[in-house]
């Protein structure tokens, strides 16, 4: 059942995700800088930052429990698995059947709970504040993401991500209005989940607004490096899911080596365009007040529900 080619494709996918994820973050940052008329850091800047952090020693608060030190690894593991499940290069992945779209959402939730618990562990004002805000975003974003994935599952009659990609890319080209609505919702959710501008700004430490940064305030050294890496993996995983749902062409249908190798440049090209669009969205939008965030996410949630309703009405 599990072919050697599949295993190799799976490994290639994980390694590629680990390498491409920081590059994607660097690419988005570059474009953000360019669009804002600043001089951009190099593409490899995230790797330099990671290396620097790994070299430094970790400083841990005196009151930290083992949970605090375990959390970065757990979050990193969750995100790596998420990247492994999402079909980026091939659809015949050995890990694919282990987790479908619903389990993928559960995986993100697991990582979120861990990072929130770790933030509460030290017992500082900022940590608990960050945890509360993160969970607030999570409880609205999670069902919205699930509904987006459901819209795609209803079309392909499967919750397996690989089957969804095969169904969407394999059949005759067709316009699915429900998927279009779901796409809007998905974009909104991804912005919130990846701490992007209308919802959160990862480049400030302002107590009124920060969410993601408040969570990881107490981390340093290798722990921080792992969390940062996990954050870029999350962005990568979301991009992969978005590409798989809305631009599914170019992913190898089987485990043929040539097709997989061909899929790499296609993936990189799609990610490059996606990253540019993300930077554009971040540039032309202003950050919302925190009170507006639930509204924003509720809109995304309801849009995803409308996508499901439209699917029921139109059958597409």
């Amino acid at each position: 059942m599990v072919s050697l080619g599949g295993v190799l494709a799976q490994l290639l996918e994980i390694v590629l995700a680990l390498l491409l994820a920081p590059l994607l973050s660097g690419w988005v940052n570059q474009w953000r800088a360019w669009l804002q008329g600043r001089q951009a850091p190099g593409l490899l800047q995230p790797f330099r930052v990671l290396h620097k952090l790994f070299v430094k020693e970790s400083v841990v608060a005196e009151s930290a429990s083992p949970l605090f030190r375990l959390a970065p690894y757990a979050i990193f593991g969750c995100m790596a698995l998420a990247c492994a499940i999402a079909p980026t290069l091939a659809t015949d992945l050995p890990l694919g059947p282990a987790a479908d779209a619903i389990a993928l959402v559960g995986l993100f939730a697991l990582a979120r709970v861990f990072i929130s618990l770790a933030a509460m562990d030290i017992g500082t004002a900022f940590g608990t504040l960050g945890a509360r805000r993160e969970m607030m975003i999570g409880f609205l974003a999670e069902p919205a993401l699930l509904m987006v994935l459901f819209a795609a599952s209803l079309i392909s009659r499967s919750t397996s991500l690989a089957r969804i990609v095969e169904a969407l890319a394999g059949q005759d080209f067709a316009i699915h209005p429900s998927l279009a609505v779901a796409g809007v919702a998905f974009t909104m959710v991804s912005l919130a989940e990846n701490a992007r501008v209308p919802v959160d700004n990862p480049s400030t430490h302002l107590e009124l607004t920060m969410i993601h940064e408040a969570l990881i305030l107490e981390y340093s050294g290798r722990h921080l490096a792992l969390i940062e890496w996990a954050a870029s993996l999350k962005l990568f995983a979301y991009s992969s899911i978005g590409l798989a749902l809305f631009v599914p062409w170019g992913i190898a249908a089987g485990a043929a080596p040539l097709a997989i190798l061909l899929a790499i440049p296609v993936l990189v090209a799609k990610l490059a365009v996606g990253g540019m669009l993300l930077a554009l969205i971040e540039t032309i939008n202003a950050k919302m007040r925190l009170f507006r965030v639930p509204e924003f996410l509720a809109t995304a949630f309801l849009l995803a529900v409308i996508a499901l309703l439209v699917h029921v009405l139109l059958g597409a």
């Binding site: 841990v60 005196e62 900022f126």
Partner: peptide
């Protein structure tokens, strides 16, 4: 991480910005 870098750890009071 422990093989290529190190496992050094230091405890300190919480930072909290």
């Amino acid at each position: 991480v422990h093989r290529f870098y190190h496992g050094q750890l230091r405890t300190a009071p919480p930072w909290d910005c």
